[in-house]
Amino acid sequence: MSSRGRRRIDEIGDESRRRILDAAEELFAERGFDRTSFVDIAERSGISRGSIPWHFKNKHGLVMAVVERAIERAVDIEHYASLPTLAELFDDYAKWVRGGNSALLFMILTEAMSSTGAVHRQYQEFLTQRRRGVALWLRAQRPKGVDPKIASKRERTFAVALTGTLYGIHLQALIDPDGFDLDEALRLVAEQFDKNLADLWATLPAADDAPGGCDAGKTTD
Rank of each mutant, 00 (worst) to 15 (best):
L182P: 05
D91C: 01
W137K: 03
G117M: 12
R49W: 00
I9Y: 04
F180V: 04
E11Y: 04
D199H: 12
Q192S: 12
D76S: 10
G179H: 07
A24H: 02
R131Q: 15
D181L: 04
F28V: 02
I175H: 08
V67Q: 13
R17G: 07
A185E: 15
E68W: 00
L105N: 06
Q124H: 11
R6S: 13
P205W: 12
V160I: 15
F180Q: 11
R142D: 03
E184K: 14
V75W: 07
F28A: 00
E155S: 10
L162S: 07
L27F: 01
L105V: 12
Q192Y: 04
E155Q: 15
I175C: 06
E26D: 13
A216I: 05
I47F: 00
A70H: 11
E125T: 06
Q122L: 15
D199G: 03
Y123K: 02
R31M: 06
D178W: 02
R130D: 05
M1R: 07
S2I: 02
R35N: 14
A210T: 00
K144S: 14
K57F: 08
E155M: 15
L62N: 04
D22M: 06
P148Y: 11
P84F: 08
R49I: 08
A65T: 05
D14F: 06
L182R: 02
R35P: 00
H170E: 14
H79P: 00
G145W: 02
S37Q: 07
R18D: 13
F158T: 11
G212K: 12
S82R: 15
A65W: 03
L62T: 04
I175D: 11
S45Y: 04
